[in-house]
Design a protein around this nucleic acid. Structure first.
Length: 567
RNA sequence: UGGGGCGUAGCCAAGUGGCAAGGCACGGGGUUUUGGUCCCCGCAUCCGAAGGUUCGAGUCCUUCCGCCCCAGCCA
């Protein structure tokens, strides 16, 4: 924590706040907000915005609000409100009683609109959407004034009233601000403030049939709430002049908007539009699929709030959009989980081992350390017996030099168990697969120590066959095969980059027995393999389902990779 | 040919005229009953490019190049 503060001293937004406080702007108040639209789940990009706005408020002893910007009833649902609240709470933030909805301000916003009409700064326009587009001009040429631009204030007031009363069908009229059709900033070309939408709203029901646009809502909502620093992403930078225009014409409190660059991560997509497509096409199993970069998905996969917040600290804040390496995210979870996750032994792909010289009916309880990084985690007993399972990948019939594990005639240590030597192996003639190992153990090496000081090059994890608990284990890898899935040639669907092997299900995993009573959400390290988490939804006492959060750093895998490249 | 923004290592990112922090990744070594953790070492003569100002420029000026956003009655 301290380290990250040292290495990332500050950023331009914090600097602005510090100087505002020094200058006693807003009486030194700091009040931020996070303004999601309830039309989807929160993802890691939103988490950045949340941690920034809320984190800064906490840092400067200020306040923060949660406000849903729910101005489009055709796209928003209350289920998303619930999920968003759940996810932000999980991240560790508490906005106390300051939960708001832009829809709470619909009456006020209507009055603001009337005020602008009365000032001659807004008018009712009867142009169709197509006509409006045609008269808006292009990026390089100015637009032309609407023929309705010079209606009288009285007529505008009357028409707006009738729009509100439901006298016109959808799309027939809008209320527009009267600004400048020749502005280089497209947002200033007489933007729409209100549109007719005969749709039920998730909170206001059928009270309204006209709804304010986001641009006519957002800035004023911040103003109403007394927000001092309105942080938002960079694409809204050229909306700021519009927000300022509304605020100034309305003569209301002026929050300061500051924009920051959006963050994405390689090998995934972080755009609500694309995440929705993944969900609706069935490519993933819902918004909370552990492969999704949503907070719900990451929680289900086993990420901790701490790991996400540290990750966001490490990535920093800047004005340009960035694509952060997935490896940094993995580093952040490992860093957290290494400290807090208990160690357990689990064999993912079991290979039967029979200790020929071990007594048939003997079961020994071996002492195992729960977490070498945390002495207070204590120890536990693990049963050892004649028949065990080890990892299939821990044996090779004809091992290369750098392979330290079991092979014919080799000796290794079973963690907290004994030294064993492999004498023979059984092979399925047809498949060529190794099915069983016969070994002998050294009774003097109990617990894994060698009394004569002899060394072995490897320590393997194992579980006693008759005591093991069977489980399903889900291994996840990148959802996409390419670093930047969105970068596709024209006409090519970005979804062609999907990694068909992003989910691997192992149904025969064998776990050490103490794991059978753990609750959903339980996290631990399977020694030598990675960090795992009991699935929130699919796991039950008689059918355990573990999700792999991430692997351990794997030097052996790297050596193999290098060897392959060398060839 | 409009407006706005941004370019420091493979990825993030400090730096605010005094001689290129840090993290991740990568490579090498040590410790180790996890090929984990931990610990050491290495990794930009150079800051998108070219000119200029200055004793001195990533920081200031000029020009150029590249990338992102904007033509929803979406947010």
């Amino acid at each position: 924590m301290k380290e990250t503060e040292n290495t990332t001293p500050s950023h331009f937004i914090r600097n602005v706040i510090v100087s505002d406080i020094e200058n006693n702007k807003n009486d030194g108040r700091v009040h931020t907000r996070f303004p999601p639209e309830p039309n989807g789940y929160l993802h890691i990009g939103h988490a950045k915005a949340i941690c920034l706005s809320y984190g800064l408020a906490e840092e400067f002893k200020g306040l923060y609000n949660l406000r849903f910007d729910d101005t489009n009833p055709t796209k928003e649902e209350s289920i998303y409100v619930d999920k968003i609240i759940e996810d932000i709470k999980w991240l560790g933030f508490n906005w106390q009683e300051r939960l708001f909805f832009a829809s709470d301000y619909f009456d006020q916003l209507y009055e603001y609109a009337v005020k602008l009409i009365k000032k001659g700064k807004a008018f009712i326009c009867d142009l169709s959407p197509d006509e409006m587009r045609e008269t808006r001009g292009t990026l390089t040429s100015p637009g032309t004034n609407s023929p309705y631009r010079n209606r009288t204030i009285e007529e505008n007031l009357d028409l707006f009233e009738k729009m509100k009363a439901g006298e016109y069908p959808d799309g027939t009229r809008v209320l527009r601000a009267k600004i400048d059709m020749s502005s280089g900033n497209m947002n200033m070309r007489d933007p729409v403030m209100y549109r007719i939408l005969h749709a039920d709203h998730h909170r206001t029901g059928d009270k309204w049939c006209i709804y304010p646009t986001y641009d006519f809502t957002h800035g004023q909502s911040d103003s109403i709430e007394g927000i001092t620093h309105s942080l938002c992403s960079i694409e809204f930078e050229d909306h700021r002049p519009l927000y300022d225009w509304y605020i100034n014409e309305l003569e209301i409190f002026h929050p300061q908007q500051i924009e920051f660059g959006r963050m994405s991560i390689n090998y995934t997509v972080v755009s609500k539009r694309k995440l929705i497509q993944l969900v609706e096409s069935g490519i993933v199993n819902g918004w909370d699929d552990p492969r999704m970069p949503t907070l719900s998905g990451m929680r289900r996969r086993g990420y901790t709030p701490m790991s996400i917040r540290n990750f966001l600290d490490l990535t920093g804040v800047a004005k340009h959009n960035s694509t952060v390496d997935f490896a940094l995210l993995e580093h952040s979870v490992r860093e957290d989980l290494n400290k807090i996750a208990p160690r357990r032994m689990a064999v993912l792909n079991p290979l039967k081992v029979i200790i020929d010289n071990y007594p048939d009916d003997l079961v020994e309880e071996m002492d195992a350390i729960n977490n070498p990084e945390d002495e207070s985690a204590g120890t536990r007993k693990v049963p050892f017996s004649k028949e065990l399972f080890i990892e299939h990948s821990d044996f090779m019939e004809d091992p290369p030099k750098k392979f330290f594990r079991l092979g014919p005639g080799r000796e290794v240590r079973l963690r907290y168990g004994y030294f064993i030597t492999c004498n023979e192996f059984v092979k399925d003639e047809k498949s060529g697969e190794i099915t069983e190992l016969h070994c002998t153990y050294d009774p003097a090496s109990r617990g894994g120590n060698s009394p004569d000081g002899r060394k072995v090059k490897a320590t393997l994890h194992w579980v006693s066959a008759s005591h093991a608990v069977k489980a399903e284990v889900r291994l996840f890898s990148h959802l996409f095969m390419s670093e930047n899935p969105e970068a596709v040639e024209d006409g090519v669907d970005w979804k062609t980059n999907i990694n068909p092997e992003s989910l691997e299900v192992l149904s025969e995993a064998m776990l050490e027995p103490c794991l059978k009573d753990e609750k959903p959400g339980y996290k631990c390290q399977f020694e030598r393999q990675g960090y795992f988490c009991l699935d929130e939804f699919d796991s039950s006492p008689d059918h355990l389902v573990f999700n792999r959060t991430t692997t351990l750093r794997d030097t052996w895998a790297r050596i193999q990779k290098q060897a392959k490249k060398g060839k």
